Lab assay of single mutants.
Amino acid sequence: MTEYKLVVVGAGGVGKSALTIQLIQNHFVDEYDPTIEDSYRKQVVIDGETCLLDILDTAGQEEYSAMRDQYMRTGEGFLCVFAINNTKSFEDIHHYREQIKRVKDSEDVPMVLVGNKCDLPSRTVDTKQAQDLARSYGIPFIETSAKTRQGVDDAFYTLVREIRKHKEKMSKDGKKKKKKSKTKCVIM
């Protein structure tokens, strides 16, 4: 069974824990209790493949930012979460993405942009803004509501699919490099 290491990042209060708990335990946590770091595991079937999701729910508070490099190193894919009623959390996505790329030393890291709290009427981040940002990053965008469960499975499952595509691409690139290195030079 394939294991996928997913990391949920975003500013404090955007609903990272609520999304994760909704996926794992099928219930909505409405009281806000700032996370330092929590880890969850769940076995699911995605596109006919049974897999184990190892999900790291991270601290959004700035005082825990020193811990970010460590979990970013171990993560295979990242859910970059903002709240649709919090423009600052949307603007912060850029910083999370840049930090992930720096730590992973790669421009090509599996990510999904997630606009959470889409059940709320007080939207300050337009869907088109988020779609445009995701398009500019070359990553999928999904709106979710941890409260109603809308888009929750889709967000995590899409990230797994992005990781699969990335692994497939990397193995193809690896095979191309191996083929090239088999060419021999004969000096007579």
Rank of each mutant, 00 (worst) to 15 (best):
T2C: 10
T2Y: 06
T2I: 05
Y4T: 14
K5L: 02
K5M: 02
K5S: 04
L6T: 04
L6Q: 01
L6C: 07
L6N: 01
V7A: 07
V7M: 09
V8R: 00
V8A: 03
V8G: 01
V8F: 03
V9R: 03
V9I: 13
V9K: 02
G10L: 00
G10S: 13
G10Y: 00
A11F: 11
A11T: 08
A11E: 14
A11C: 12
G13L: 09
V14Q: 13
G15E: 00
G15A: 00
G15V: 01
G15Q: 00
K16I: 15
S17H: 01
S17K: 00
S17F: 00
A18S: 14
A18C: 06
A18P: 14
A18D: 09
L19I: 10
L19W: 13
T20F: 02
T20H: 03
T20Y: 00
I21V: 10
Q22I: 01
Q22P: 04
L23S: 14
L23P: 03
I24G: 05
I24Y: 02
Q25V: 09
Q25I: 09
N26W: 05
H27S: 12
F28V: 05
F28N: 01
F28Y: 12
F28P: 03
F28A: 05
F28H: 07
V29R: 05
V29A: 12
V29G: 06
E31Y: 09
Y32E: 02
Y32M: 11
Y32A: 10
D33L: 04
D33A: 04
P34L: 14
P34R: 14
P34F: 12
T35R: 15
T35L: 15
T35H: 15
I36L: 15
I36W: 02
I36M: 12
I36F: 06
D38I: 00
D38M: 01
D38C: 03
S39R: 04
S39Q: 06
S39H: 07
S39T: 11
S39I: 05
S39G: 09
S39L: 04
Y40D: 00
Y40S: 04
Y40G: 02
Y40A: 04
R41T: 02
R41L: 01
R41C: 02
R41A: 02
K42V: 05
K42A: 05
K42Q: 08
Q43E: 12
Q43S: 11
Q43I: 08
Q43T: 12
Q43W: 06
V44D: 10
V44E: 09
V44C: 12
V44Q: 08
V44W: 05
V44M: 09
V44Y: 08
V45M: 12
V45E: 12
V45H: 12
V45Y: 06
V45N: 11
V45L: 10
I46E: 10
I46D: 11
D47N: 06
D47S: 06
D47H: 05
D47E: 09
G48F: 03
G48K: 09
G48L: 03
E49K: 11
T50F: 05
T50L: 09
C51E: 07
C51W: 10
C51Y: 14
C51V: 13
C51I: 13
C51D: 08
L52F: 06
L52C: 12
L52G: 08
L53F: 12
L53Y: 10
D54V: 03
D54I: 01
D54M: 01
D54E: 14
D54H: 08
I55F: 13
L56G: 13
D57F: 00
D57L: 01
T58C: 14
T58D: 14
A59V: 13
A59Q: 06
A59L: 05
A59F: 06
A59C: 15
G60E: 15
G60D: 15
G60L: 14
Q61R: 02
Q61N: 06
E62N: 10
E63R: 03
E63K: 04
E63C: 04
Y64A: 13
